[in-house]
């Protein structure tokens, strides 16, 4: 399983690096590993320790964003390599955002299930009766 994850990670990491080079923003490289998380059943929570790596051609104030929440911010930095605990239940796009709320780079972490799903999304909100 870990070997499979590494293979997927390397492939997507390379793909992103090519895209980043074409990016007009100053981020030259941005990656999160692993890029996929395998859970038993869809809907299970995935807890992983992610390695975040980025560098840019000039010093930046940026934050790493997950679902509009800032997981970590850096000030006046040209590069960073951090290890962070991350929790997700569905495929999630992480973003590097500058102080002007501009998205400089993104990367998706995908969730896949090994077993047929045991859970599904509710189609009404919990309190819709009221």
């Amino acid at each position: 399983m870990y070997f499979k994850m590494i293979v997927i990670g390397c492939f997507l990491h390379l793909t992103f690096s090519i895209n980043a080079a074409e990016f007009k923003h100053p981020i030259l490289h941005f990656s999160i590993k692993p890029v996929a998380c395998i859970v038993k059943q869809m809907g299970d929570e995935c807890k992983l320790t992610a390695t975040i790596n980025w560098h840019s051609e000039k010093a930046l104030d940026v934050c790493l964003i997950q679902d509009k929440l800032a997981l970590k911010c850096w000030q006046n930095a040209t590069s960073a390599r951090n290890v962070l605990p991350v929790q997700l239940r569905s495929t999630t796009t992480f973003a590097l955002r500058n102080k002007n709320n501009q998205i400089l780079a993104t990367q998706r972490v995908k969730i896949s299930a090994t077993k047929p799903k045991k859970y599904r999304r509710r189609l009404r909100s919990d309190w819709s009766l009221f």
Binding site: D44, K47, T49, L69, A70, L84, R89, T114, K118, R121
Partner: peptide
């Protein structure tokens, strides 16, 4: 760090099934 999960879970790829699943049933 502005917002982080409460507990630092051990590194693992397989997530545990949990009792409470927001918006999942």
């Amino acid at each position: 760090i502005l917002s982080l999960p409460n507990a630092l879970a051990e590194t693992k790829i397989i997530g545990d099934a949990i009792e409470q699943k927001e918006n999942y049933i």
